[in-house]
Nucleic acid binder design. Structure first.
Length: 489
RNA sequence: GGCGGCGUAGCCAAGUGGACCAAGGCAAGGGUUUGCAAAACCCUCAUUCACGGGUUCGAAUCCCGUCGCCGCCUCCA
């Protein structure tokens, strides 16, 4: 039985979708005005696994994740410049070129991390008419008001305002400077539509004049457009609980009269060497830099290692990036990969035959434990623990010297493919396989054959030279009981 | 100031009232195996869960207090 931690109510709850077997998931996507960073990786890898696990459980999931290509504002929710617009001016290109460029960059990085693409990635700019329509509805229902081309949501018209973050309007009142927001009725009122200044590049016509949508609006509009008035799961970063998600709830529920979200899931943040990551702090790590080994990590991180590393902690726990921790993750993942490779190679020449009870039991028990962990609010850290224990047991079997029949190896391989592959996404078709072109492969085989002859003749010095040279080329050679094995590092 | 979270071995990290467990990984030490190496496996590595009280038959897990760290309250995954 799957239990999820619902930020709304702050409790672990049994997961029950609104409709029998279908699950609608919406996750706040990136604003595309720069390359993605390791925080994006944690967020989207986490939700990727959540969706993968729901599918593993048999749910029919529709996963929607927006692309925010209308720039939010640099300053305050309702003032300042459009970030995409600023970038466009700096680069001397159209705002849509900025958005397109970084949208591609985002998907490139997510693909590298083996994040499956959401089913629908709606763009905010492609849903302006729908956003205008929602604003109209809110005006008609008396939840919004217009002041000189700006439309604001009237928080006092929505008694539950702040129920997600646990804030009350009185508290919000206190923290606000007196002179601020003269135009608004209540300082917590937020913009649904903003009038565009002269210099504002992204602008659309509306019943209230030329302008652009407020930054909370798109998520309400696009999630309800593709899922319906009530979402099963809405995910996002913890830092968005207030005001973004509270505002989404207010505007959505005020418009539809229906509960907006059944389960709110929020992932925690990343830190770098124990400190908050921020552009101004100089410890900002983009994924492209991390993969390339640029500062401050000083060490190239294989995308799959980053994925594994992210999954070794719970999605609701903060994750600290450090070279030491990443190295530990790399070693650990390598062990699993090596074992997957052993199993796959053994399978190639495996004799027909049924799996011994011992193996069946091993696989069944691991599968059950894995499920127990994941059922507990997607505890990937626990699930990886199971995978590690399983890997030790598999190696033990493989080391025992007995030849395992085909069905035994298939059962083991199936565990890796389904749980390590389909669910966690850290094992792929290529894992443990000897990559490289055909000719390269043949050349390596030829060299290893020569080396084997040399070893038979006890000419170890020359044999080791071959191994060392291959090592320098990034090809790792290991002598096993069945002869030498090699792979690209 | 308001809201929320965290503090488990050298490091990373599960566990959130009990009995096969303080998982699992990294590092370290010892061993098996190996021409050497690597890989893999075995053994060792927290009588203890920041600290001090309390509740309970029983707490790392609940309550109170102290100390330390962090996030949000402006855009941010």
């Amino acid at each position: 039985m799957l239990k999820v931690y619902n930020s709304l109510g702050r409790k672990l709850q049994e997961f029950e979708p609104l409709h029998e077997n279908s699950v609608g998931v919406y996750v706040c996507g990136p604003t595309v005005y720069g390359h993605s960073h390791i925080g994006h990786a944690k967020s989207y890898v986490s939700f990727d696994v959540i969706v993968r696990y729901l599918r593993y459980l048999g749910y029919n999931v529709r996963y929607v994740q927006n692309i925010t290509d209308v720039g939010h504002l640099t300053d305050d929710a309702d003032e300042g410049e459009d970030k995409v617009g600023v970038k466009a001016r700096q680069m001397g290109v159209q705002p849509m070129e900025v958005a397109e460029r970084y949208t591609r960059s985002y998907f490139e990085d997510m693909d590298a991390l083996n994040v499956r693409r959401p089913d629908i990635c709606p763009r905010a700019t492609g849903h302006i008419p729908q956003q205008i329509k929602l604003v109209k509805t809110l005006l008609e229902k008396g939840h919004a008001y217009e002041v000189e081309g700006n439309v604001y949501f009237d928080v006092e018209s929505f008694p539950d305002y702040g129920k997600l973050s646990g804030r009350s309007l009185d508290e919000m009142m206190e923290g606000v400077r007196v002179e601020a927001r003269g135009e608004k009725r209540h300082p917590a009122d937020f913009a649904l539509w903003k009038k565009a200044d002269e210099g504002h590049l992204m602008r659309w016509d509306s019943p209230w004049g030329i302008g652009f949508p407020g930054w909370h609006l798109e998520c309400s509009v696009m999630s309800m457009e593709y899922i319906g008035p009530t979402l099963d799961i809405h995910g996002g970063g913890l830092e968005n609980v207030f005001p973004h998600h509270d505002d989404e709830i207010a505007q959505s529920e005020a418009a539809t009269g229906e509960p907006f979200v059944r389960y709110w899931l929020h992932n925690n943040m990343v830190t770098v060497n124990g400190q908050k990551m921020g552009k101004s702090l100089g410890n900002f790590i983009t994924l492209k830099d991390a993969f390339a080994g640029l500062p401050p990590l000083e060490r190239s991180v294989r995308p799959m290692v980053m994925r594994y590393f992210i999954l070794t902690s719970h999605y609701r726990s903060p994750l600290d990036f450090s070279v030491e921790a990443l190295e530990g993750a790399e070693k650990a993942l390598q062990r699993i990969e090596n074992t997957v490779g052993r199993v796959r190679r053994a399978l190639e020449g495996a004799p027909a035959g049924e799996a011994p009870d011992e193996v069946t039991r091993l696989v069944d028990e691991a599968r059950e434990s894995f499920g127990t962990e994941m059922d507990n609010d997607f505890n990937t850290a626990g699930a990886i623990g199971v995978l590690n224990t399983f890997t030790r047991d598999v190696n033990r079997l493989l080391d025992a010297g007995e030849v395992l029949p085909r069905e035994a190896l298939e059962a083991v391989g199936g565990f890796y493919d389904e749980l390590g592959g389909d669910v966690l996404g850290i094992i792929t078709e290529e894992t443990g396989r000897q990559a490289g072109g055909e000719v390269t492969g043949e050349l390596v085989e030829t060299l290893l054959e020569v080396r084997s002859r040399l070893r038979e003749a006890s000419q170890y010095e020359l044999a080791d030279t071959i191994r060392d040279r291959l090592e320098e080329l990034g090809i790792e050679v290991q002598d096993g009981p069945e002869g030498p094995e090699w792979r690209f590092r």
